[in-house]
Design a protein around this nucleic acid. Structure first.
Lengths: 121, 121
DNA sequence: CTGAATCCCTGCCGATACTG
DNA sequence: CAGTATCGGCAGGGATTCAG
């Protein structure tokens, strides 16, 4: 088998595809870094379902501690998945929302779901 | 917004979608577990390119230590991504190949690549 | 050639307590 | 309500050495 174009366009031909070590600039690493950490995908799922505030998420994921939830929200905001908005007034409310980029994680999670699904062998 | 079917079929309606804690039986967790660990996606990429033996991978990924490479091959074999075949004769050669399930990781890596690619901003 | 065994170091995650 | 501060346990991963 010589070098041929396979059915996965981006992978073999993109310049980043030639890295020989894990580097943060590799697109695959960037995505995995965004999804990295326990609870992260479940938090994203709650946003896809419509959760908006810290308390929403606490009720949806009761086993998740405040500290880790806070870490995840900060991490996902840093990764460009979420936007953070402080609502003025009392009591203080903070509103989180998926960015357009965050919404595009839907197909990614779907691909992960499909491969891991028992029906998919 | 009431409960409606969104454009990501598997996620909201599957029974596993209702987990409220990270569980190994969740399809998303299964896939992330298979891809977990430094160097893992690069090893898979080398198999998609045609690498077959321990030495092939050592040459393709010179910064990867023997121990970690061995760990990754065992882990991917355990996850059903690779098949391990001992070649009879001397010197001992071991042949690895992607399983059909392993080949199906192509679209998954593609989805990860696409989201993380700068062009997809 | 293809790993397995061991050691050490680092970073994640959970629990608890505290703050504007 | 929405976090931050701190501490400790544990597992991941790198280097080195040994084995079939």
């Amino acid at each position: 088998m010589t070098h041929q174009t396979v059915s996965h366009p981006g992978l073999p031909d993109d310049p980043y595809a030639n890295v020989t070590a894990p580097t943060p600039s590799c697109p695959v690493e960037i995505t995995l870094a965004a999804l990295q950490g326990r609870w992260t995908t479940l938090v994203i799922r709650e946003f896809l379902r419509g959760s908006r505030t810290f308390t929403d998420l606490r009720h949806a994921l009761p086993m998740l501690s405040d500290k880790v939830l806070s870490d995840r929200l900060a991490h996902l905001t840093e990764a460009g998945v979420l936007e953070r908005h402080r609502q003025p007034g009392r009591p203080p409310r903070v509103h989180y929302a998926l960015t357009p980029r965050g919404h595009r994680l839907g197909p990614v999670l779907q691909a992960l779901w499909d491969w891991g699904s028992p029906a998919s062998g």
